[in-house]
C-alpha cells in the first residue's frame, strides 16, 4: 500500500460563519448557526419535568432530535443525534439537575457540507443561550482530505463528494482536546493527527467567535 501523506497547504480557509441567539420565543434557548450556505436552527427546552421511563436518578436526561430538511428522520439523523448527544453529555454538568429532562432540537435548513460541525456549533450556542451549566464549551470542525492529499477545512458539499476521507471533530475549549470524532473514508495515522492539529487550530477561531458574540450580546452598544 502506498504511504498516505497529507499535505497542509499554507492557506486553509474557514467559510464565513454567522450566528444568532435567542431568536425563537418558545424554546428556553435557541440559536441559528450558518457555515457558508450550510445552516441549522437549534432549540433547547429544559431543565424540565421528565417522563418516568426516561428518568435517571442522579442526572438529567438529555435528548437530541435532528429534523432533516425533507421527510422524516432516518438512520443518518439518528447517527448524527448520537454524535451530538455524546458531545453535549461530555460538556454539560448534568448531575446538577438530577431527574429532569433536557431536549435539544436541531433543524437542518440547508446542507452545503460540514453539516455535523454546524450542528455541533448550533447546539453549543443554544445551550449557552439556555444558560445551562457546562464544564467547557465545544465546537465542531470538519476536515476533508482530497484526492491529492490536501487537507481542506470546512468543506462544501462538492468538496466533500470529491474527498478521500472526511473527519469531524468536536473540540473542547479548555485544553482543545478531542471530545468526539466521526470519520468516513480511509486515511493514515499521520493524516489523522494532522487533521486533529488543523482542527485544534481552527477551533481557536471558533472559540474567539463564540467569545465575540457573547461579548456583543452583553454589551450596551452595538
Amino acid at each position: 500500500m502506498a504511504v498516505m501523506e497529507a499535505r497542509c497547504s499554507s492557506s486553509v480557509m474557514l467559510r464565513e460563519f454567522a450566528c444568532e441567539q435567542n431568536f425563537l420565543s418558545q424554546p428556553d434557548g435557541s440559536a441559528s448557526f450558518v457555515h457558508g450556505d450550510t445552516s441549522v436552527y437549534a432549540g433547547v427546552y429544559g431543565p424540565a419535568e421528565v417522563k418516568v421511563s426516561k428518568e435517571i436518578y442522579d442526572r438529567a436526561t438529555l435528548e437530541v432530535l435532528i429534523q432533516p430538511k425533507v421527510g422524516l428522520p432516518g438512520v443518518r439523523e439518528r447517527s448524527q443525534e448520537q454524535c451530538v448527544r455524546e458531545t453535549c453529555e461530555a460538556s454539560l454538568l448534568l448531575s446538577l439537575h438530577p431527574r429532569s429532562s433536557l431536549t435539544l432540537i436541531l433543524q437542518v435548513l440547508h446542507d452545503d457540507g460540514s453539516l455535523l460541525s454546524c450542528l455541533l456549533n448550533a447546539a453549543c450556542m443554544s445551550l449557552m443561550d439556555a444558560g445551562l451549566p457546562m464544564s467547557c464549551l465545544f465546537c465542531g470542525v470538519t476536515c476533508a482530505i482530497d484526492a491529492d492529499g490536501q487537507i481542506i477545512t470546512d468543506p462544501t458539499a462538492a468538496q466533500e463528494k470529491e474527498s478521500r476521507a472526511l473527519m469531524t471533530f468536536a473540540i473542547d475549549s479548555k485544553k482543545h482536546n478531542v471530545l468526539m470524532t466521526s470519520t468516513k473514508g480511509s486515511f493514515s495515522v499521520n493524516e489523522l493527527q494532522q487533521c486533529i492539529a488543523v482542527s485544534q487550530k481552527a477551533s481557536e477561531k471558533l472559540f474567539q467567535f463564540y467569545r465575540d458574540s457573547v461579548r456583543r450580546r452583553y454589551s450596551k452598544t452595538l
Binding site: E16, C19, Q21, D37, T153, A197, A202, R217
Partner: peptide, 30 residues
C-alpha cells in the same frame, strides 16, 4: 442564502467573514 437573512443590527447576532488560518506548525506537531 440564510447568512444574508440574519439581521446583523441585533446584538444577539454576529457574523464573521471568511478567515484564513495559519497552518505553519501543524505538520510538525502531527
Amino acid at each position: 442564502g440564510f447568512a444574508e437573512s440574519i439581521p446583523l443590527e441585533r446584538i444577539t447576532a454576529l457574523k464573521m467573514d471568511e478567515t484564513p488560518m495559519e497552518m505553519m506548525d501543524v505538520t510538525e506537531r502531527a
